[in-house]
Design a protein around this nucleic acid. Structure first.
Length: 652
RNA sequence: GCCAGUUUAGCUUAGUCGGUAGAGCAUCGCAUUCGUAACGCGAAGGUCGUGGGUUCGAUUCCCAUAGCUGGCUCCA
């Protein structure tokens, strides 16, 4: 007998070799039908993390168990991974001779990389594949696990002629290899899987894309088929609705509708043009940050858009990124070369060097809304989130070793204030450290890296941030802390970043005179709460669906006179608002009030003031809030105070 | 950069199995002077992304090229 501990702490005895499915059955058949996977934490497991098991896999020692239903991430992962096998099974039935790469579960579904030989898969074929998957799912095929030897595994796939699987197997250790079979399809797989295919009720293949074998651009391009499956048809429908909602919130669409920014083929790929309303929006965001940064002791600086190549040779960026950047700008002077600035830090280092610095000067915080230019690969460009010209809300903090943590904490405070003001309620902080093994790409000493990494970890802990640690995600010059926010419909975006840098001060030979009279090297911290204005505006538009907070939105109020007769009064109201720094305009076009209200709503303007006979006589306005909420009629002065209060409360 | 798809009026789009294109919104004119999500009538607007090729004839077929989209790789 073995003892199984349940999440509520209760312990029950079971026969050795019992399965999660049998345990669930013992509780209720309904539960057993819904359980897709189980986390089993054997008493001997010192990490306490346990392993996700197939529900049919025997449990052979005392263990804690957690049964996973669809709502758990673990269950979804197993479900989708199994679905990728179902996809492969369907593909093998429909396209005999196809070869398979890998087919994992991802955040939203799964994919399988497939080599179709000479065949070019087109989207029209997906429907037939979906139907075949459903057909197989209904036959209730069990996922059967089988341990195989390395030789056996190689033999199977070489007879099948699948060189991709053979390559994968050749890298595995003998004795750790397992196959899973569903119906007539057998795949190399570590598992775990769902019990059988019958729980897969709804299938949607979402996209076809090219993907390099093993992510290596020098190797074979495989066809990647993306899909998602659900245990209920209604869940698929909900998912499709969410996709529609995401489409509606696309910042590229909203940016066009709200006339914020545009692109021109003639200006060039990835070079956004900010239209008047968008430029004003940026300006408001800049002022917002300037104000708080001033409170935190930042000093605003300005640096040119180009810099001598020598500057980037010194910084090391030329060696690392030179070949993939915009080409150097030449001059009439033989041998003279300049680069469009790809970052602001080297310039700020030179600003630091303009005079000898004392330990009393530190920390020194140089801030700049600095526009930088990077030659991103053409296929990588996307709306405002990935462009070739963008403006960083950049700052570099030069400080003493003992000040790092405090400076870090202060930056975290600024970032949290930004998130709060812009209503990003959910976020996590990702601590990016060096790769655990492969360390030759990092510049700087082991000792300095250790110090930097622990400073970040401590600061994050002190501020109580929800954190995840990622190894191998650090920049080449230092570890970093990145903030990932969740938007209103649950998608994750990377925003603010804080990075420690022991490298540039070294390269630029930055120094300060300490209290001991000796020369010391300052530490540099890069930070950008928005990341870039472009990216931030994009995320903000997707987060809010274009319904920006009142303080930020391009047009706050529109005044609609019922007819021409009240246009003069409407103008008067509009002027009063403008004089009180409220962004108001008038729409006195010869259109019905209904039509103008509709158009104003579609333009996402927060307040509509309707004025006619009654309002003109009383010196009042009839207030309608975005979405049709009638706020009643009030004197103009009262409305002005009302708006000013709302703005003030949003910025508090 | 790589794979695939896509590009028709300012915007959203229909369409032509090869015979030079049709709509809604926006714009302009007329009518209307209106009380909270589309009043009516009329007009104008397109060398169908660009350059080649095939053809009696190309927006449609083929090739090249650019932009865009979805992925891959990349992201200082």
């Amino acid at each position: 007998m073995i003892n199984i501990t349940f999440p509520d702490g209760s312990v029950r005895p079971y026969e050795n070799g019992t399965t999660a499915y049998e345990i669930a059955m013992g509780i209720s058949p309904k539960l057993a039908a819904e359980v897709l996977a189980a986390t089993v934490i054997p008493a001997s497991d010192e990490t306490g993390k346990g392993t996700v098991y197939d529900i049919t896999r025997p449990i052979c020692e005392d263990a804690a168990i957690k049964l996973h239903k669809w709502d758990d991430a673990e269950a979804k992962k197993v479900f989708w991974h199994s679905s990728s096998h179902l996809l492969a099974q369907a593909l093998e039935a429909l396209y005999p001779g196809v070869k398979f790469g890998i087919g994992p579960a991802i955040d939203n579904g799964f994919y399988y990389d497939v080599d179709f030989g000479g065949h070019q898969l087109v989207e029209a074929e997906l429907k037939a594949i979906e139907d075949k998957m459903i057909e197989f799912a209904r036959t209730k095929e069990e996922f059967v696990r089988k341990e195989v030897s390395k030789a056996e595994a190689l033999e199977y796939f070489s007879s099948k002629g699948d060189e991709y699987k053979q390559e994968l197997i050749s890298e595995l250790e003998d004795g750790t290899i397992s196959f899973y079979r569903n119906g007539g399809f057998t795949d190399l797989c570590r598992g775990p899987h769902i019990k059988d295919t019958s729980v897969i009720k709804a299938v949607k293949l979402t996209a076809i894309a090219g993907a390099y074998w093993r992510g290596d651009e020098t190797r074979q391009m495989l066809t990647r088929i993306y899909g998602i499956t659900f245990p209920k048809k209604s869940l698929l429908d909900e998912y499709l609705v969410l996709l529609e909602e995401a489409k509606k919130r696309d910042h590229r669409k909203i940016g066009k509708e709200m006339e914020l920014f545009a692109f021109s083929q003639r200006v060039g790929q990835g070079l956004p043009l900010w239209l008047p309303k968008g430029a004003a929006l940026r300006d408001r965001l800049e002022q917002f940050l300037r104000k708080i940064q001033k409170e935190y002791g930042y000093l605003q600086v300005v640096s040119p858009h180009i810099g001598n190549k020598a500057l980037y040779v010194t910084s090391g960026h030329w060696a690392k990124y030179g070949k993939d950047s915009f080409r150097p700008i030449t001059t009439p002077q033989e041998g003279e070369e300049y680069l469009l600035k790809p970052m602001n830090c080297p310039h700020h280092c030179e600003i630091y060097r303009t005079r000898p610095r004392s330990y009393k000067d530190l920390p020194l915080r140089f801030a700049e809304f600095g526009t930088v230019y990077r030659y991103e690969q053409s296929g990588e460009l996307h709306g405002l989130t990935r462009v070739r010209s963008f403006t960083q809300d950049d700052a570099h903090l030069f400080c003493r070793q003992d000040q790092i943590k405090e400076e870090f904490c202060k930056v975290i405070d600024i970032i949290l204030y930004v998130f709060k003001t812009l209503d990003f309620k959910e976020f996590t902080a990702q601590i990016s450290l060096r790769d655990k093994v492969n360390r030759e790409k990092y510049i700087g000493s082991e000792e300095n890296w250790e110090k930097a990494e622990s400073a970040i970890i401590e600061a994050a802990a002190e501020k109580g941030l929800p954190t995840v640690v990622e190894y191998g995600e650090a920049a080449f010059y230092g570890p970093k802390l990145d903030f990932m926010v969740k938007d209103a419909i649950g998608r994750s975006w990377q925003l603010g970043t804080i990075q420690v840098d022991y490298n540039l001060p070294e390269r630029f030979e930055l120094e300060y005179v300490g209290s001991d009279g000796g020369k010391h090297r300052p530490v540099m911290i890069h930070r950008a709460p928005f990341g870039s204005l472009e990216r931030f505006v994009a995320v903000l538009l997707e987060h809010t669906g274009g319904k920006l907070p009142l303080w930020l939105t391009p047009e706050q109020v529109i005044v609609l006179p019922i007819s021409e007769k009240y246009a003069d009064y409407a103008n008067k109201v509009c002027n009063l608002l403008n004089n009180s720094d409220i962004r108001a305009s008038i729409d006195d076009r010869n259109e019905t009030i209904g039509k103008r209200v509709r158009e104003t709503e579609l333009k996402r303007i927060p307040y509509i003031l309707v004025v006619g006979e009654k309002e003109m006589e009383a010196g009042s306005v009839a207030v309608r809030k975005q979405g049709g909420k009638d706020q009643g009629t009030m004197p103009v002065e009262e409305f002005i105070a009302f708006i000013q209060n709302e703005v003030k409360s949003q910025l508090a």
